[in-house]
Every structure is written in structure tokens, then in C-alpha cells.
Measured scan of single mutants.
Amino acid sequence: DEETLERIAKELKEKGWTLIVNGKLITDAREALKWLLEEEERR
């Protein structure tokens, strides 16, 4: 759910983690959240 996604995005940002999505590096939590939401919609 959205709360979980926001928590994940926040944790990613705090830890300075990066996500690699389709070979693209995502360092911004907002971008990561946007991607996660798009993935949820596809299901």
C-alpha cells in the first residue's frame, strides 16, 4: 500500500541507497517511489 511505499522511499533516502531500474540508476527517493507506484499499477 501507499504508506508502505512511502516508508520504503524514506528509508532508501535515509540510507542513501540507489535503485537500479531497467539499467537506470535511481538515487532520488521520489523517483523510486514513482517507479514503485507504477509497478503496483501494472499488477
Rank of each mutant, 00 (worst) to 15 (best):
D28N: 08
R30D: 04
I20Q: 01
R42M: 06
T18I: 14
I20C: 15
A29S: 03
I20V: 07
I20A: 02
L19E: 00
E11M: 15
R30P: 03
N22C: 15
R30N: 06
R43K: 07
K13D: 04
A32H: 02
E14K: 09
V21Y: 06
A9F: 15
A9G: 03
K34L: 10
L25C: 10
L5M: 05
R7I: 05
L5C: 14
E39M: 14
L25S: 03
K15M: 10
K10H: 08
L36S: 00
K10I: 07
E38A: 11
T18D: 03
R43W: 13
R43E: 05
L37E: 01
L5G: 02
A32F: 14
A9R: 11
E2N: 07
G23E: 03
L5N: 02
L33I: 07
G23C: 15
L25D: 02
A32G: 01
L12A: 03
E38S: 07
R7T: 04
G16F: 14
K34M: 12
D28L: 15
A9N: 05
E14S: 06
E41M: 13
G23Y: 10
W17R: 01
E14D: 11
D28E: 05
K15I: 08
V21N: 02
E11S: 10
E39I: 13
L37V: 04
G23K: 02
R7P: 01
N22H: 04
W35K: 01
T27P: 03
E14P: 02
E38K: 08
L37W: 07
K24W: 14
I20Y: 09
K34P: 00
L19F: 08
E6K: 11
E3S: 12
N22M: 13
A9E: 06
D28Y: 08
L25H: 05
K24N: 05
E3W: 15
K34C: 14
L12C: 15
L36F: 07
E39F: 13
L37F: 07
G16N: 06
L36T: 00
D1Y: 14
K24S: 06
R42L: 07
L36W: 07
D28K: 09
L33D: 00
K15D: 03
L37T: 03
W35G: 00
T18E: 04
R30K: 09
E6H: 11
K34G: 02
R30E: 06
E31G: 04
A29Q: 03
L12F: 10
G23T: 03
E31L: 09
R7D: 03
G23S: 03
I8N: 01
R42T: 05
E11N: 07
L25W: 12
K24Q: 09
N22R: 06
D28Q: 05
L25M: 07
I20F: 10
R7C: 14
K34E: 06
R43Q: 09
E2S: 10
K10L: 11
E41I: 11
E6Y: 11
W35Y: 07
A32L: 14
E11P: 01
L25E: 08
T27W: 12
G23L: 13
L37Y: 04
K13C: 15
I8S: 01
L37Q: 04
K24L: 09
K24R: 08
K15T: 04
D1I: 14
G16Y: 11
V21M: 06
D28I: 13
E3L: 14
G23I: 13
K34Q: 09
R43H: 07
E2Q: 10
L37K: 06
A29H: 03
L25Y: 08
A32Q: 03
W35D: 00
E39R: 07
E14L: 12
R7V: 03
L25I: 09
I26Y: 07
W35Q: 01
E3D: 12
G16I: 15
A32N: 00
T18Y: 10
D28A: 13
E41K: 12
L37S: 03
K15A: 06
L5D: 02
L33F: 08
E38P: 02
G23D: 04
I26Q: 02
I8Y: 04
K15R: 12
G16L: 14
L12H: 02
I8C: 15
A29I: 14
D1K: 10
R7A: 08
E31R: 11
K34I: 09
N22F: 14
K34F: 08
I20W: 09
E14V: 05
R30L: 13
K24P: 02
E38R: 09
L33W: 11
L12M: 08
G16S: 05
K24H: 09
I8H: 02
T4R: 13
I26H: 01
E38H: 08
D1S: 05
